[in-house]
Design a protein around this nucleic acid. Structure first.
Lengths: 240, 240
DNA sequence: TAGCATATTGAACATGCGTTCAGGTGCTGC
DNA sequence: GCAGCACCTGAACGCATGTTCAATATGCTA
């Protein structure tokens, strides 16, 4: 069909745009744009310029297509992340996936993050592992504060960030920032998001006195197993 | 089938636990448990103990059902939020919706937050408005640090929190905490989440030097990008 | 009692889905 | 040449879906 490309699916070969690859790419875009549930074999086929039968012929089923897309996007993100980490220090978790023509990957991710997919779980785990390692370096070099729970801090920060990605429509509506924009860094409204984010990550939001008060409550609850959590007055509900 | 102590319904109607209400409740549970796309009229009908036709008869269409569920859940959350805000200060955004038998509302919310629904948008807007007002009180009473962008800070914090809710499966897997658990506050692993969260919100993660470095980079980018916006950095950030 | 509106059913319908399959096309090796 | 093979098509199948509708049950009004 195309140029003198050899046999079909050969990852790493020069011309990957075989029909199979075109279908996969079209599927990623379709999943990203229309959502998982609203993406049908026929839509993907039309977008890729092939017949519906070919979609199933190459991927076995729609679920197979989903898995292939998951893996392709995960691989793309890993590649971007690696080059970003090699290029030097960055601090936000999104930084890993911006400044690169990542295409529809961010939008795709935002769509599948809430579904359960083993591939995505593994990707999230990896992102957290890397963040944790990254934070550790930051602590050692004096850029980041140490944590009582480095792993937990990495989990919370990465999932907050990814959760923000999932809710990108709300950010777009409320702050005018599209977190899935491939070239987010040139967005004029970026600071509407980055400003508050850096402020929070810079100094928190609690004052000294409140922070110490909460901290003592936390450690207290941590030591005694059955103690009230720090959220203060939970109204007794009678029966338990 | 449950009877008697049903969850409250529309304010204004006395006994709403009609078949229509049963269908709506079953639908909320079904949406929450199986997801939006996998919830069919027949499943809802079976769960409510009625025929599929009745579902459409009462709500016009499945989309009508979705809207009715959105509005019901939004009303429930607003009610909970109001009583929580009346009961005194709390600091995390989840606090609004825990300590109450909110049923499947949190799981439902987690499912619809990423879809677009005008009702949910309005609910999110309200949550942010309340958080902003709430933070303002916290600043006045000396519990919270002032912000250069109070609105932006509220948006970011609420959406990070809600994003975490959407990704509750990942939190459950990684920290053992189920953020959609109706009685979250008694969860033994709660601190695996609250600890890092409070740590971040307490003092941030950046050290002094890095924070000032980033801040200068931000203002620099702000000035070079365009003219200095009218309301920006009028107030110098905390003396610390 | 009759009359009427509402509540509810269950079978039917049209639609769109994922998937299958028999066959067509073009290339490669003999 | 022509067999073999991979790629690809497009019609078809079976199924689940949302929705419709005539028919029935139920309860309210007079």
């Amino acid at each position: 069909m195309r140029s003198g490309a050899a046999t079909a699916d050969d990852p790493g070969s020069f011309d990957d745009r075989t029909a199979k690859a075109r279908i996969r790419d079209a599927a990623i875009e379709c999943f990203a744009e229309e959502g998982i549930a609203d993406t049908t074999a026929r839509k993907v086929a039309a977008a890729a310029g092939v017949s519906p039968g070919l979609v199933i012929h190459h991927f076995g089923s729609m679920e197979g297509l989903r898995i292939a897309c998951d893996e392709h996007v995960a691989a793309a993100i890993r590649r971007i992340k690696e080059s970003a980490m090699a290029s030097g220090p960055g601090l936000d978790v999104f930084g890993m996936m911006r400044d690169t023509n990542i295409g529809s990957a961010a939008r795709y991710l935002a769509r599948v993050l809430a579904e359960d997919s083993h591939t995505v779980e593994t990707l999230v785990d990896d992102l957290i592992d890397d963040a944790e390692r990254y934070f550790e370096q930051g602590v050692e070099s004096g850029m980041l504060l140490p944590s009582n729970d480095p792993r937990g801090r990495a989990v919370v920060l990465v999932l907050w960030s990814l959760g923000g990605l999932v809710l990108h429509d709300h950010f777009k509506r409320l702050l005018g920032v599209d977190l899935t924009d491939p070239d987010l860094s040139t967005s004029p409204n970026l600071m509407a998001y980055m400003g508050p984010a850096y402020e929070i990550l810079g100094s928190g939001i609690f004052t000294e006195s409140l922070a110490s008060h909460l901290q003592s409550a936390v450690t207290e609850a941590d030591e005694t197993d059955r103690e009230r959590p720090p959220s203060a007055q939970s109204k007794q509900k009678g029966t338990r």
